[in-house]
Amino acid sequence: MNRLRESIHDAPVVERDGYRYLVHPVSNGIPTLDPKLMREVVNGLLRLVDFEDADVIVTPVTMGVHVATALSLTTDVPLVVIRSREYGFDDEVPFEHPDGEYYLNDVTAGDDVVVVDDLVNTGQSIAAIVEAIDDVGANLVDVACVLRRVESRDDLVDVDVKSLLEVSVTADGVDVLDDASH
């Protein structure tokens, strides 16, 4: 995780409405995402998560899409992107997400699901996704993210989220607290 760790130290922090946002290539595409960094991220997630028995990788329609796509291409596990737009399909499952109503398609009862995201800030998004997966009757195999902020509120009391790095975002910048342990 050398490249990822180094990239964190160089990541700018932008404050908006009293909240400090980490701006990072993996979670924002700024600065440019180096393919070597992405490869390191994918290889790290492959070590953390067992994709062998997964039927589908699920990710919200945010910056986690490129990480989940790379994992899908590497593992040959199909990818489902949770959308913020309704399409009206028969099996479409609407659910409340922190950003409004979202829609889960193509995940059915009995599917073994791995949820992947780029950054877990508060846990609200992942908690909503996990609940929607449970509501469909699918099996949650694993939840993994690249970065997890530890100082933020965490709505994931009952969900084990594996992360490549745990970080703290402060007024002085970003500190790496832990790697590959969750």
Rank of each mutant, 00 (worst) to 15 (best):
N2R: 15
R3I: 09
L4D: 06
I8G: 00
V13W: 09
V14E: 07
E15G: 01
G18C: 13
Y19H: 14
R20W: 11
R20H: 08
S27Q: 08
S27A: 12
P31E: 08
T32I: 04
D34N: 15
L37T: 06
M38Y: 03
V41M: 07
V41L: 06
N43Q: 05
L45S: 05
L45I: 14
R47C: 01
D50H: 05
E52G: 06
D55Q: 01
D55T: 05
V58M: 10
G64Y: 05
T69Y: 15
A70T: 08
D76M: 07
F89M: 06
D90N: 08
D90I: 12
D91Q: 13
E92Y: 10
P94L: 11
E96K: 14
E96H: 14
E96Y: 14
H97W: 06
G100D: 11
E101H: 04
Y103G: 07
L104V: 07
N105K: 14
N105W: 05
D106L: 10
G110L: 11
D111Q: 08
V113E: 00
V115F: 09
D118T: 01
N121K: 10
N121Y: 05
T122N: 07
I126S: 02
A128Q: 05
A132Y: 02
I133L: 09
D134S: 10
A144C: 06
V146S: 04
E151Q: 15
E151L: 12
S152Q: 14
D154K: 09
D154R: 12
V159I: 15
S163K: 04
E166A: 11
G173Y: 02
V176Y: 08
L177E: 12
D179P: 00
